[in-house]
Amino acid sequence: MNKRILTISAFILLAAVSRMIPHPYNFAPLGAMSLFGAAYFSNKKLAFALPLLAFFVSDLLVNNILYADYYSGFVFLSPGFYWTYGAIAAIVVFGILMLKKIDFKRVIAGSLSASLLFFLISNFGVWVTSPMYPMTFEGLMACYTFAIPFFHMNVLGDLFYCGVLFGAFEYAKQRVPALQTA
């Protein structure tokens, strides 16, 4: 593997493992990792695989170390995981389409859009799978409404991690010529 692929992969893995550091609820690198992989991997299979794999590894750590008291036994995949992983894949697709050219405005817009995409997909999943909400339009709107208080930390987390990932990589590209696109 070349330095560029290894560096991009390391950035994504470090962002995923940062979920182990104490942080506010929903302040996570999910959207940023997905956009970052989409923007910088020329191999689009890696753009999907690395964020999904990194998030899976961090889920194993988070669910079985930080949240171990909430589960009985080892948790391989948390309930509703397919909505979270589906949101990651959707954000990667969005990032591939939006971030063909990387600049400040696109990264900010991508970050905000990633937060919104995650909010819409994950809470749709809550509505579909939870007996708390009736399977009506009103039930869906109630689900989204009750999720709003968690949204601001998602937005802040994506903005923060996009700033760190994209900023650090752009800085590294200036210092290490091997990280430039071939």
Rank of each mutant, 00 (worst) to 15 (best):
Y25H: 05
F48N: 00
K3C: 06
G37E: 01
D69C: 04
Y144I: 02
F41L: 03
F166K: 00
K173S: 01
F151W: 13
A38W: 00
D59Q: 07
G37Y: 02
M98T: 12
S9A: 14
P29T: 06
I88Q: 03
F94E: 01
F11I: 13
T181Y: 10
S18W: 04
F169E: 03
A90M: 15
F150C: 09
Y171K: 11
V62P: 07
M132S: 15
N2G: 12
F55A: 15
R19K: 05
L116V: 12
M1F: 14
S130V: 11
Q174D: 04
F74E: 06
V126P: 02
F74N: 08
S9D: 08
P134K: 11
N2E: 10
A109L: 15
L112K: 04
G110M: 03
M98R: 13
R4L: 01
I148W: 08
V93D: 07
G80M: 04
L120H: 13
F27V: 00
I5Y: 03
F56E: 01
V155H: 03
A178L: 11
I108K: 02
K44Y: 06
L165G: 01
L60K: 07
N154F: 13
F124A: 06
L116T: 10
F146A: 15
P134I: 08
F56V: 05
V92T: 02
I65T: 15
L77E: 02
P51V: 07
